[in-house]
Design a protein around this nucleic acid. Structure first.
Lengths: 203, 203
DNA sequence: ACTTAAAACTTGTCAATGACAAGATGGGGC
DNA sequence: GCCCCATCTTGTCATTGACAAGTTTTAAGT
């Protein structure tokens, strides 16, 4: 990174704003994030973001799109390490909960419909890629499965990991400190149990 | 209800404020809910709520406590209709997703840690009752289960229904309109599959 | 019954926020 | 070399949560 003299035209203010937004999310969570705070971090006026994002909703949507991209990357890295389809899905489950724990505020934002505009192109594309990644992994277990059964299996696998992630982030899981099992451990075990129960039984 | 002449002292402003808050939640969702709007609905000044709730956080917590009470009631009604423990848990799963769909904003609020103060006595008590209700239903399936395995089973059952509920409320489920399965249908089926896989296999 | 303290409710104020309007600046197309 | 317009600015407004200080009613004590 070269030292930049402050110019009237930033050069890549849009990217800088998103980076600032993500930094705030990571450091202080969703409640601390405002367009004005983002502008302060980027050393621009409070109205500057408006020329790149029509509303705070659109700004958050583009931040979330960034998050979905990294999320998808993490899921794919986990899946690609395994050639057995069921093990790939189990690894994805672990990566899903891990990502949620490592990126609490971002994860909550990504699935907070009320704060986002789902029609934002970047968010739509990124979340679709993440979903496709999940579908592909589940379908690889049983490629000939009927479409309705596939829908159900994908939804259930997703619900298990998303439920664990959400409950964990809201401190509803692992309430007994003497239990060493983490939410990630349990989610992994749950995914294994589910796949064992349905796949071998011909769901 | 008798016609009330407007008095300086409301009589039960606290209750009226919570009722107003719940009405706003139902009609317009979380984003529309503010203490000032609640005060307007109750025909009191903008500072009146402050004498009953130290902050908006505490107000929302007491609203959420109300929600948890009705939630627990709905779960128990569903469970009590079945004498077979596994069927009771399956019925609770259906009731869980049903409640989330019927009370979207309230459900989202109930599990939004960032908006609540979990130490609020009413909320703490109400959410604990809901959790105890879930634990009891799952434990009834296999009363002799080791504590760690029970923890895991409760968490997984919870994650399945909570995952389905959360994904449904954020419009991540049932994206193909030609699939007639609702999130509630799938959650019920998933709970059945999970219990069949683990319970008969001896956890 | 009368006094008085406190609870309940009021108006007024402040800083922060999102959104908008209108002006200043400077880079790129011609 | 000149102008256009994207980019960034300052200024403003309504809304919100929180707080301060004053007013009205209830209720407790004598």
């Amino acid at each position: 990174m070269t030292v930049k003299a402050p110019r009237y035209h930033h050069g890549d203010l849009r990217g800088a704003l998103i980076a600032a937004g993500r930094a705030i999310l990571e450091e202080a969570g969703v409640p601390a994030l405002s367009l004005r705070e983002v502008a302060r971090r980027a050393n621009v006026s409070h109205a500057a973001p408006r020329h790149h994002f029509p509303s705070v909703r659109h700004f958050l949507s583009d931040c979330a799109a960034d998050g979905f991209d990294e999320f998808t990357e993490a899921l794919q890295v986990a899946a690609f390490r395994h050639s057995v389809p069921t093990e790939a899905v189990v690894a994805m489950a672990a990566a899903y909960v891990q990502f949620a724990g490592d990126n609490r505020a971002m994860f909550l934002l990504m699935f907070d419909r009320d704060s986002l505009d789902e029609r934002t192109p970047a968010l739509l594309a990124a979340s679709t890629r993440a979903y496709a990644c999940l579908v592909a992994a589940v379908q690889a277990i049983d490629p000939a499965l009927a479409i309705d059964d596939l829908d159900y299996r994908v939804a259930t696998a997703w619900a298990i990991v998303h439920g664990y992630a959400t409950l964990m982030l809201n401190e509803k899981i692992c309430q007994r400190p003497e239990n060493p099992m983490t939410a990630k451990d349990m989610a992994t075990r749950a995914m294994r149990d589910y796949l064992r129960g349905t796949v071998t039984a011909g769901g």
